[in-house]
Amino acid sequence: MTDVTTAPEPLGLRERRRLQTEREIALAALALFEERGVDGTTVDDIAAAAGISGRTFFRYFGSKELAAYVPDVEIDLGIAARIEALSADRPLVPQVEALWRAVVEGLGRDEARSVLLRVRRLSLAEPSVRMAGLHRDEQRTDALVQHLLALYGPEREVEVRLVVEVSLACLRVALDTWAVAADRGREVDLVATYDTCMASLHTLTRG
């Protein structure tokens, strides 16, 4: 019989705790980067601000630049659940579009919007942060593509990669449009902007 005091935690709870710790470290890093710049901040500085060791820092981030990208626990867990729920029995395009739409819906919270804008401003000001973000996005995109290929089959690789890349481009356009408007003091509905981007894409592809 398993001792309930030593039974493993559910994966969802472990992942939530991991993401929360990652978020706390990243928020500390973001604040230091804003105050001192990336070059003026060390991993030890970030670790001290987050109350962890430098060794622990590298359990969560491969570099200090990657720590600028603050995870959102609820959004990240929601995306993971949606990816796991993807099914080869349903059309590919609507499922991928719904995945990114869930992201923009999650960014509707004031705190999420505020952090995203801070990260975006930092990435525009710091080339090393921007490059780290591009590499991070490439890795995550490739992971999603591999997951979809396992569902739909390798013979659909071109289609899968095209759907993922094009839909991601729409997401980026929506986020950039919203962020630029926010920096200029204008309110833009992010979800509506994403829907407009997708509608424009469908119009273009229909010729």
Rank of each mutant, 00 (worst) to 15 (best):
E138R: 10
V93F: 11
T6H: 13
R140M: 14
V173L: 05
V191C: 06
R59W: 09
A50F: 00
V158H: 07
E74L: 11
A29C: 12
L151M: 04
T5Q: 14
A98S: 14
G54V: 12
V70F: 11
V4Y: 10
R16D: 06
R82F: 02
I75W: 08
L77R: 11
A31L: 05
I83H: 00
R156N: 10
L175P: 00
E165G: 11
A112I: 01
L168R: 15
I46D: 01
A179R: 11
R109F: 04
P10D: 11
A28H: 08
D44I: 08
V166I: 07
P8A: 10
R16A: 10
G153Q: 03
P91C: 01
A48N: 03
R113G: 15
R184L: 13
R109G: 15
S167I: 07
G62K: 13
A192W: 01
R206K: 09
L92T: 11
R184P: 01
I25Q: 03
P91S: 02
R186M: 13
A81C: 00
V180W: 13
R140S: 08
V38H: 12
S87I: 01
V166T: 11
D44S: 10
E34S: 13
A132H: 11
L92D: 04
R16L: 06
G185V: 05
L92K: 04
R82P: 01
A7P: 00
G37C: 10
F61G: 05
I75T: 12
L86H: 01
R82I: 00
G51A: 12
L13E: 15
D39S: 13
D137T: 15
L122F: 09
A182F: 13
A26H: 07
V158K: 00
V96G: 01
A174M: 04
A112P: 03
R156S: 04
H202Q: 10
